[in-house]
Simulated scan of single mutants.
Amino acid sequence: MAKKDLYKFTIQFSEGDPLHQQTADILNRQGRRKAQFLVNAVMHYLHCSETPDIPQPPPIDTNAIEMIVRRIMAEESSKPIAGEQSIQPPAQRSIKSEQINFGDASDLLGEDGIAAIKNTMASFRK
């Protein structure tokens, strides 16, 4: 779907980010000259020899996430469910968790990310 008006934008700044707050304050002081201010700022930024590179977050490694999910599923499937007999894991597994380097993915996802995956997997088991 093509953009309806190529020269009209709506943007929203993050209230929790001090740089966004400062930028919004500066833009609000421009009154009806916001567009010209933004044009000047962008053109200066692009053509200034001292402009630093904008850091980009590393791409999400979906293979690492998939391996983590598989490891968690394997760990969870080996735990006995309350009131039931222990479930035996399948005889053959294509990937063993000992063969996977989860350090990089764990660093990428953090403790909260790993916990979220574990909670999601636990919800699927219910």
Rank of each mutant, 00 (worst) to 15 (best):
K3T: 12
Y45K: 04
S78E: 07
R71Q: 01
R93K: 07
A122H: 10
Y7M: 08
S78M: 06
G83C: 05
D112N: 14
Q88P: 00
E84V: 04
G110N: 04
T51Q: 04
S77K: 01
G103M: 09
R71E: 00
E84P: 02
D61F: 08
R93S: 09
T51F: 04
K126V: 09
D104P: 06
S94Q: 01
P89W: 00
I72A: 05
P59D: 11
R32L: 08
F102R: 02
K126A: 05
S97P: 00
N40F: 08
Q92N: 09
P57L: 07
G103A: 13
D61P: 00
E111C: 12
Q30C: 02
G31S: 02
F124P: 01
P89M: 07
A64E: 01
M121R: 12
L109V: 05
L19R: 13
Q30D: 05
G113S: 11
A2E: 15
A64S: 11
I81K: 12
G16D: 13
F37Y: 13
T10L: 01
S97M: 03
D107G: 15
T120K: 15
R93G: 13
D112V: 12
K3Q: 11
K126R: 15
Q56T: 15
D5G: 01
A24C: 06
K118Q: 13
V69R: 07
G113H: 05
A64H: 09
S78F: 04
F13R: 01
Q88D: 03
A24D: 11
S106A: 13
I11E: 04
F9P: 00
L108F: 13
Q88C: 02
I54G: 08
F13S: 00
C48H: 13
L38A: 04
M121Y: 11
I87R: 15
R32K: 14
Y7A: 14
R70H: 12
K4M: 07
A35H: 08
P52W: 00
G31C: 02
D104I: 07
T120R: 12
R125G: 11
I26N: 09
K8I: 05
L6C: 11
E111W: 12
P89H: 11
S97A: 01
A115F: 06
L38R: 02
H44F: 08
T51S: 14
V69I: 08
Q56D: 09
L38H: 02
K8W: 03
I100V: 15
I11T: 10
E66N: 08
N28P: 03
